[in-house]
Amino acid sequence: MDWTESGIETRAIHAGQEPDAQTGAVVVPIYATSTYAQDGVGGLRQGYEYSRTGNPTRTALEESLASLEVGKRAFAFGSGLAATDTFIRSACKQGDEVILPIDAYGGSYRLFTKVLAEWGLKVTPVPLSDLDAVRAAVTDKTRVIWCETPTNPMLSLADIPALAQIAHEAGALLAVDNTFATPYLQRPITLGADVVVHSMTKYLGGHSDTVAGAVIVNDDVLADKIAFHQNAIGAICGPFDAWLVLRGIKTLGVRMDRHAENAERIVEFLGTSAKVTKVHYPGLPDHPGHDIAAKQMKNFGGMVSFQVAGGPEEAKRIVAATKVFTLGESLGGVESLIEFPATMTHASVAGSPLEVPDDLIRLSVGIETADDLIADLREALG
């Protein structure tokens, strides 16, 4: 069945996940196989020969992702950074340039500046909210504008249609890391982006039990290049990890609604605390990107960052004092996490233009009872 016209909650459950033709199983099987019997030399059964090239469980996930992000083709990888690396090597060559957000995720910054730069890529960090600065940074060698919106951990917003126009006028691609928003809240391709990237470890998986990444594209030529590099480089998503992400995607809508509801309650509480000096959340009317978020996103998501009086030592005390919030570096799971970005998730950008404030705390708000989360933060803040 063609699920194109169905709502996203319906597509999350059904697209790419038809009942098994042989058994009627309503959940996609885990094809834990490396090798497929061929019907004679070159006679592939449904196109499968070796699981680095293709696996039915991974295919189901890729079809689901393409449907959710309204793209032509999707590719599942072993991690979000593997997805990013494979895409960039498919879209760029040595000597090309990439524009990066000034507050990009630390792991992405490390990949671009410590790995891809040595390969011959020039990387220019720019505040993407400043469209004039973006235009000034574009050259005839710019091949990709890399966008994260909202960003990690400052939750800055970027205007996807405006950036797409700048990129396309320069003959470049706009790639959007949609990990924080997910396709439930924001679909960048429908706003003009060419490529969407995910760390599926986060909200798409949703249960902190798998590591995986994805690239979704809207161009067949680029898709063929990525397919070639995915097979040649081999950083694929395994069948069990693909199955776990498919399991998570089925409940994406209800989870994201609850994440956002809880985040809004917590933001309201943080605004009353004398210990908190600033709250970063797109849902706040005075947040610099609030109007853009309201235009591009269904709701404002489950990520919250805030700064505290007392500097880094006080911030570290607070993150160690919570009991319901778990001190941990990831995000997007059903359980709430708290962390100190300066020396945890964003240690790789210390001393760089992307360095984060040393009094910043980041929350990944889970789906627990909101009153319990607020009570936990109230006690930790003191």
Rank of each mutant, 00 (worst) to 15 (best):
N152V: 12
G7Q: 06
P161D: 14
A263K: 09
D359E: 10
S51F: 03
T272A: 05
K275N: 02
Q38A: 15
D372A: 04
G332H: 08
G43D: 10
A223S: 13
S305Y: 01
S364K: 06
T53D: 09
R89K: 14
L270F: 03
P19G: 06
S156M: 06
S6Y: 10
A309Y: 00
Q230N: 13
Y203I: 12
L331F: 14
I266F: 03
G71L: 03
L204T: 06
T201D: 11
H280W: 15
N299S: 06
M1Q: 04
D132I: 02
L327Q: 12
G382H: 11
V27S: 13
S90A: 14
F340N: 08
L128I: 07
L155N: 06
T113F: 01
A83Y: 09
G205A: 15
I99A: 15
R110S: 09
R135P: 00
A164M: 07
T4G: 03
I318Y: 03
A274V: 06
V356I: 08
G310W: 05
Y105K: 11
R89T: 01
M344K: 04
Y48L: 15
N178G: 04
K202D: 13
T149F: 04
L61V: 04
Q94S: 15
G40L: 03
L68T: 00
I160V: 15
R143W: 13
D96H: 11
C237D: 10
G80C: 07
V134I: 15
G7Y: 02
L363T: 07
H259G: 00
S6V: 09
L121R: 11
A158G: 06
A25L: 12
P357N: 08
P285M: 14
G42C: 14
E49H: 02
L252Y: 09
K298S: 01
L222D: 10
L270R: 00
N231C: 09
L191F: 09
G382Q: 15
Y48S: 06
E339K: 15
I374K: 02
D220I: 10
N262F: 14
T53N: 09
A76L: 12
S199P: 00
A162I: 05
G120N: 10
G47N: 08
V267L: 05
A21I: 13
E5Y: 12
I99V: 13
D257Q: 11
S6I: 01
L174A: 03
A167R: 06
V308M: 08
A37N: 08
A347R: 11
V308T: 05
E313T: 13
L61F: 10
D85C: 10
D371C: 08
G40V: 11
H229R: 14
R45V: 14
I13D: 00
K298R: 07
V276K: 02
A91K: 05
R58H: 04
S305F: 03
H14C: 01
L65E: 01
V196R: 01
T201L: 04
M303Y: 08
G106D: 09
P161T: 09
G205D: 13
E329T: 15
V334Y: 03
I338N: 02
Y109W: 15
T345P: 00
E268H: 05
